[in-house]
Amino acid sequence: MNKQNTVARLDLPHIDREDKLNRILSAALDNQGDILSEKNAKNETPLNYWNQEYFNLHKVNIFQESTATEKRLILQLCNLEILKEAYFIEKAGVGYMAKMILLAETTEERMLYGLFAADEVNHFSKISGFLPVPKINNSPFLNLLEEVVESNDKKVLLFVLQVVLEGWGLTHYRSIAKHCQNIQLRSTLNSFLQDESRHHATGVTLFEKISLTKLSRETITEILAVFLQMVQVGPQSVVKAIEQVKGSLSREEKINIFEQLDTQNHSGIRLKKLHSLMHLPNATSVINSLENKGYFQPLKASLCVL
């Protein structure tokens, strides 16, 4: 795939801060994040927005037995993972909304997606102020997101991205905002909620008006099966952060960490929420197929070691 022709463009570069175009953009956004962004770019601001309790690390023996420096590094990696995901989701959202402007079937729908594109630009600009410009890595979720937004099937786009993922994102933003220790970032995240709710509601409204074709239903089921499997295997990024700081972990050590993180309960809550988001009348066959294959069932810790 030629990424220059893709919608998400997660690898799209930034221009120099002093570029005239950047100054025009900042003026248009009335951007308040420039000073903070510059500090973070120089790594002068530690990433300590969420504490160990948010990640359940206070229950993990190997973390509690670590040195103060190791704990700080693990927490920074966990914090960075949350911010990077938000950064790339909002970046992809700009391209997605632009695509939906072109796929709009009424004037009002096109107007709505034009407004939504501006929301995504605003969110992306704001979240960018809280972390250094991240490099795109091999994230299974972001890889899936990039693939989905390339679909030309509007039914797939509406259900997967706006009904399910925007609804999921709304719950996620509420959670990270509630537990964020930084007043400015908490306020920023809370400011996203009304927009995300509107994006989700629009997806539900438009999707409820259509009937799924056999191909659309199969495509949606296949995509959501992959996504649900990611949720089933629990907080992989937390275990990865521990291993990155502590060194290679044995399978038994990883199982112990997943057990101490209460992975099965952690995943079960999220899978239950995703099930409720999908519960629309014209998506019953999708839910039934996913249920029959066990994708809404959380996995025990031993099955989360990849």
Rank of each mutant, 00 (worst) to 15 (best):
Y173V: 04
N182L: 00
Q194Y: 10
N182A: 01
L193T: 03
S197H: 13
H172Y: 12
H199L: 08
S187D: 14
H179P: 14
R186K: 15
S197D: 13
Q184C: 03
I183S: 10
D195C: 08
N182M: 00
Y173N: 07
N190M: 09
R186Q: 15
S187F: 11
Q184M: 06
H199R: 10
L185C: 04
E196S: 04
E196C: 01
F192C: 04
S175F: 02
R198S: 14
Q184Y: 00
Q194C: 08
I176L: 09
Q194R: 06
L170T: 07
K178T: 10
S187E: 07
S175Y: 10
S191R: 06
S187Y: 09
F192D: 01
Y173S: 05
F192P: 11
I183Q: 12
S187I: 05
D195R: 06
S191K: 06
E196A: 10
E196P: 01
I176E: 08
R198F: 04
S187K: 15
N182W: 01
L170C: 13
T171M: 12
C180V: 02
R198G: 06
L189W: 01
Q184R: 09
T171G: 13
H172N: 14
S197V: 02
K178H: 10
C180Y: 02
Q181N: 11
L185T: 00
R198W: 08
I183C: 07
R198E: 13
K178C: 04
C180K: 06
L189C: 04
L193P: 08
N190H: 12
L185V: 00
H172S: 15
N190K: 09
S187R: 15
R174M: 07
Q181E: 11
I176R: 02
N182S: 11
K178I: 00
R186P: 03
S187H: 13
T171N: 13
D195L: 03
C180G: 06
T171P: 00
C180D: 00
S187A: 14
H172F: 10
H172Q: 13
R186E: 02
A177I: 10
L189N: 00
Q194D: 14
S175G: 13
S175D: 15
C180T: 02
H179Q: 14
N190A: 04
Q181H: 07
T188K: 06
Q184G: 01
F192K: 10
S187V: 08
A177H: 03
H179W: 11
L193Q: 05
E196V: 01
D195M: 04
H179K: 09
A177W: 01
L185M: 06
N182G: 01
I176D: 12
F192W: 13
T188W: 06
H172R: 12
L185W: 00
S191H: 07
L189F: 04
H172M: 15
S175R: 13
S197R: 15
T171D: 15
I176H: 07
L170W: 08
R174I: 02
L193G: 06
T188P: 02
L185N: 03
H199C: 10
I183H: 12
L185G: 03
R186G: 12
L170R: 13
